[in-house]
Amino acid sequence: MKTYLLAATLTLTAGLVPSLAFSQTIVMGDGSAQACYQSAKMGDQGSNHAIRTCDDALRDALTQRDEAATHVNRGVLLMRRGDTDAALEDYTVAIKMRPKLAEAYINQGVAFFYQSRDEDALRAYDQAIALKTDRMPEALYNRALAHERMGNAKAAYYDLKAALELQPGWEQAEDAISRFTVTRRNS
């Protein structure tokens, strides 16, 4: 079975905090794994059918890479459904299986963020960034939102600035950074 790991971006809202972009690592392969991938890719909101498809895929004989990615896919679907606890379980399994799967850490960070576990979210985003995620702008943006909510405006600003350097013209990041005013201190 030939598989591909892909990344997609999804926009969610988080209460009074600006929109939160997060990266999803999804797997494309044969059978149930492909159907699980398609559900995550096409924006399924965590329907019972889509989650059962992922469950079926996890009962198939998958490579460790595909199994970890399928856990992340199911976690994405569970997050869309609003079940952050179950999503965190899937992200944790995926990370244990593939500790260098950077995008799993981004998803884990989003789940922590929604649970208002900002310190945990920061650690997850930091790990994704340390692993040089392919979704660096999203990781930086998400980390900026966590920093902002924790009252660290300077760190939030610099993360947003870095995200925009990597992805110029990104509307969400531009909107977020526009809330900041940079002033010079007189020494």
Rank of each mutant, 00 (worst) to 15 (best):
Y4W: 05
L10V: 14
L10H: 11
L10Q: 15
T11D: 14
T13Y: 06
V17C: 06
V17W: 09
S19E: 10
S19W: 02
F22H: 14
T25K: 00
V27L: 02
Q34L: 10
Q38Y: 05
S39H: 05
S39Q: 00
S39L: 03
S47V: 10
N48C: 00
I51E: 06
R52H: 12
D55I: 14
D55P: 07
A57R: 07
A57C: 06
R59T: 04
A61L: 02
L62C: 00
D66C: 00
E67S: 02
A69M: 02
N73Q: 03
R74Q: 12
V76D: 07
M79C: 05
L88F: 04
A94T: 00
I95D: 05
K96G: 00
A102H: 12
A104W: 07
A104G: 06
Y105R: 06
I106V: 11
Q108H: 07
Y114E: 14
Y114W: 14
S116D: 13
D118M: 12
D120M: 10
A124N: 15
Q127W: 07
A128F: 09
A128C: 10
A130C: 04
L131F: 10
T133Q: 11
M136T: 11
A139T: 06
N142W: 00
A144P: 06
E148K: 12
R149Q: 09
G151Y: 09
A153W: 04
Y157V: 04
Y158W: 14
L160N: 12
L160Q: 08
A163D: 13
L164Q: 07
L166N: 07
L166C: 07
E174V: 11
E174N: 11
D175V: 05
